[in-house]
Lab assay of single mutants.
Amino acid sequence: SASLEDVKTAVLGLLVILQTKLYTLPASHATRVYEMLVSHIQLHYKHSYTLPIASSIRLQAFDFLLLLRADSLHRLGLPNKDGVVRFSPYCVCDYMEPERGSEKKTSGPLSPPTGPPGPAPAGPAVRLGSVPYSLLFRVLLQCLKQESDWKVLKLVLGRLPESLRYKVLIFTSPCSVDQLCSALCSMLSGPKTLERLRGAPEGF
């Protein structure tokens, strides 16, 4: 439990870093931090981490990651405290083949985003970082199938509809809506759902 406290501190630090690096160059920093966060949550489900502190780590990670939004130009952003989304000039939600690297070039400044813009690109060529939603999407499927803490599952179920409104997140990387529907149906009809959940409301 003591070591998990250190892990929790590290994860919180990564969330803060991602919130900053999403809007700064090099964009590969945001890509790497995002991948680290998603990989860490995957390990929770792989090794069945069920301690309360592990659940709190997942809760905080999902609470942040499910706020990711994308505009029509595929640029990622996060809402501010007033709910207004600021889109990044440097990070996009497109999935890119590994051989192309985590970044790609664009020939010049991008068109203005639909929300308040981030800082304008400084040079004639900007390297865009790929932060594909499919990585998070796979972890969300694991959550629906394996999550043991009701608070975490409730958060994910509550945030998913709003995330799905931003269709560009889903359609720019390999996210299977069929698998999502299947996971939701299995969660509702499967007898093991109630068996594994802690803290579920009576009558769920």
Rank of each mutant, 00 (worst) to 15 (best):
L136H: 04
L188G: 02
P132K: 07
Y34H: 03
P113N: 13
G199K: 07
L73S: 10
G83L: 05
P161S: 13
L164T: 01
L73E: 14
K81A: 14
V131Q: 03
L110T: 12
G115N: 12
R138P: 08
Q19A: 07
Q179N: 11
V177W: 03
R58W: 00
C91L: 13
S163L: 15
G115E: 12
D82H: 10
L197R: 03
T193W: 08
D149E: 11
K154R: 11
V38P: 00
G115V: 14
L68C: 04
H44E: 01
P119L: 15
L155G: 10
T172K: 04
P26Q: 04
C181A: 10
D82S: 10
I57V: 06
Y34R: 02
S28N: 10
T193S: 07
K145I: 11
S56R: 08
L128G: 11
Y90W: 14
Q179K: 11
L140K: 00
L169G: 04
H44C: 00
C185Q: 05
G115Q: 14
P174V: 05
E195A: 12
P79M: 08
V177T: 06
R165W: 04
R127F: 11
G190P: 04
E195L: 10
G101E: 13
R127K: 14
L160F: 05
K104D: 15
A2D: 12
M36N: 04
S48K: 10
L4H: 09
P112T: 13
M187Y: 04
C175A: 04
G77R: 02
A125E: 09
V84M: 12
P26T: 04
C91T: 07
M187S: 03
T20H: 15
V156Y: 00
Q179C: 11
T24S: 15
C175Y: 04
L160T: 01
H40Y: 02
I170E: 03
S72E: 14
A125K: 15
Y49M: 03
C93K: 03
L180H: 00
V152P: 00
S163N: 11
H74N: 05
S48G: 13
G129T: 15
P201S: 09
V16D: 15
E195Y: 09
E162M: 10
E97G: 13
S48Q: 15
F137E: 03
H74P: 02
Y95H: 08
L110K: 14
V16M: 12
A54I: 02
H74A: 05
R69K: 07
